[in-house]
Design a protein around this nucleic acid. Structure first.
Lengths: 151, 151
DNA sequence: AGTATATAGTTTATTTTTTGAACTTAAAGA
DNA sequence: TCTTTAAGTTCAAAAAATAAACTATATACT
């Protein structure tokens, strides 16, 4: 969240981490993915210190990741995700899958992705954009290109 | 990398972040994805301070993310990725895509994924495990389940 | 009405990390 | 021989995170 030297790098990964790369931001998004949360809910659920949570929430609102709304008929507030933060879901699920696969002892909570309509299991895979067919991870190549920003 | 309070959480995301959630680890993996790197290459490329890089590299070797090998016929060393670190590629690419989509000014470097064989563009998508067909992101549901570790 | 509890933070002091810059050691090159 | 390169280490200063107590306001209980 704070300005780090690597923000000067022209790299989408470095840019993403400059926004969500701190110790807590991803975990806050993870919690709010489960529905809007109040300050104390987040604080208790995460075990983060209150002053840091306060600072992070402000920064995340500022960064356009969270919206702070007062709840109807009360003086309480809820934080909900913006579309920008919602789009972090693939990254978070990729981390979850890695965390599951490489944890020392088996057991513990597992994150499962299913298709709503059928209940079938779903995973993050590489797909050809043209036809949506899966491509094996060792059959892909990654390049960094300077974009000709004609957008 | 260091022990944080959220490591006590039973969550694959929190576990993943306890290993790769610090400010530099993901960027180091990103750089080494491009091939083995030496200490000074990493230091210059990242702009990280030398003592911190030294500490991170040790922790990453310890965590099984990097292997440190001496180069033939020289007293130099190269750090290369282990399979464990290689499997972070989907998470890193998901972050890259998000970073690209949500950066303020258009332009700058873009990460492009292609199929080696055909050169066709590829992206990370949700796929049904049964048949490998793509599922739209709003058609999925995410649950956290306690695993019955029969593994 | 008076007291207790809940919510959403703020304040302050301490500890831990990160940064930056200089230093070390050993080998290779000019 | 003198200089440069490589891979770190050491040390001091700055920044960030932690923990615990405190505040302010509003509702709930007795």
């Amino acid at each position: 969240m704070t300005t780090r030297s690597y923000q000067r790098q022209d790299c989408p990964v470095a840019h993403a981490l400059s926004v969500v790369g701190d110790q807590w931001t991803i975990l806050i998004v993870r919690d709010v993915l489960g529905g809007p949360k109040r300050f104390d809910e987040l604080q208790r659920g995460l075990g983060i210190s209150r002053n840091l949570l306060s600072k992070r929430l402000k920064q995340m609102v500022e960064a356009g990741l969270l919206a702070r709304r007062s709840l109807p008929n009360s003086r309480r507030f809820a934080y909900r995700l913006t579309p920008k933060a919602l789009e972090l879901r693939p990254a978070i699920l990729a981390l979850a899958e890695w965390g599951q696969n490489w944890r020392d002892q088996s057991g513990g909570t597992v994150v499962e992705i299913t298709e709503k309509a059928t209940g079938e299991q779903v995973g993050l895979r590489y797909c050809r954009l043209s036809d949506g067919r899966e491509v094996q991870s060792d059959a892909i190549s990654v390049q960094r290109l300077p974009e000709n920003d004609s957008a």
